[in-house]
Amino acid sequence: MRRHIIVTGAASGIGRQIALRFAGLGERLTLVDISAEALADVAAACTQAGSDDVGTITADLRLADGPQAMIDEAWGSDPVDVLVNSAGVYPATPFLDLNADTWDAVATLNTRAPVLATVALANRVIDAGRTANVVNISSGAALRARPGAAPYSTSKAALEMATRASALELGPLGIRVNAVAPGFVTVDSTANPVTEDYAAAVSGNPLGRRGEPDDIARAVLWLASDEAEWITGEVLRVDGGSSAGAMNLPLHWPAQGTDSPKGQHD
């Protein structure tokens, strides 16, 4: 049976590829972003990829009523089965330059918006006696802080806890909530640009390559599928193994012989 999928942040990067993957399954899509022009482009690409029912909603999810209005508009055309909260921002702001506005701008879109969208969807689903899946897009930054990313890292750590908290309360009501946490993924984004020096510094992992948007999209599709029907409240780290440990450190003693220093610990 064809499902109705909402993808926020669908105009570019990971969100766009998630939308294209769902389109390839022939799903009905509602694509959400702040840029109407970019949405029109991805909607056309989704039609070409295999979906014959693609709608768009131009919305600013930072507004207090933005997530509720998005759900109401999408549900008005057809009940929603899957919500993918992919919209987010990743500014670089030195810690000593932070103020209320810069902090709130990140937290509002990266944490509050997906939470409120999940609340809005859950109420609709429960009233209709249906089930649904929510997949949030987190980040490896939820576990590891880095210079200039205090608001971002905090927003994603909060999103992971919100994923667990909502899964706990909504699971008995037939709604699964999970998250995918990408490692460094190569995207062409004007909203969240990074330098090549930065990319090289953060992209080391045991599998030896940078992530691609499709690595994340395939994980999202799996979590939203019946194959993951007994999984909720989980964060799936799709990062080439980078969260397993540090790749860029040398051995802390010379690799000569078999003896190692005793009594020294990290």
Rank of each mutant, 00 (worst) to 15 (best):
R62G: 11
A64N: 05
D65Y: 05
G66E: 08
P67S: 08
P67G: 07
A69E: 07
A69Q: 09
A69R: 14
M70V: 15
W75D: 06
W75H: 11
G76R: 12
G76C: 02
S77I: 04
D78S: 11
V80A: 00
V80R: 00
V80L: 02
V80T: 05
D81H: 03
D81T: 01
V82Y: 00
V84C: 02
N85Q: 06
S86P: 00
S86I: 02
A87H: 00
G88Y: 00
V89E: 06
V89I: 13
Y90C: 03
A92W: 07
A92L: 14
T93K: 02
T93A: 00
L96R: 13
D97W: 03
L98A: 07
L98G: 08
N99Q: 06
N99A: 00
N99F: 09
N99S: 09
A100I: 11
A100G: 12
D101P: 03
D101F: 09
D101L: 10
T102S: 15
W103C: 05
W103A: 08
W103M: 12
A105H: 10
A105C: 10
V106A: 04
V106F: 03
A107K: 00
T108C: 10
T108W: 03
T108F: 08
T108E: 13
L109S: 09
N110R: 11
N110W: 04
T111R: 08
R112M: 04
R112Q: 10
A113L: 10
P114A: 15
P114C: 13
L116G: 05
L116T: 06
T118F: 02
T118K: 10
T118M: 15
V119W: 07
V119Q: 15
A120E: 04
A120W: 09
A122I: 13
A122V: 10
N123D: 07
N123A: 14
R124C: 12
V125M: 00
V125Y: 04
V125S: 03
A128R: 15
A128I: 14
A128G: 15
R130L: 14
R130A: 14
R130K: 15
T131I: 11
T131M: 14
N133Y: 09
N133T: 15
V134N: 03
N136F: 09
N136A: 08
N136W: 13
I137F: 12
I137S: 09
S138L: 11
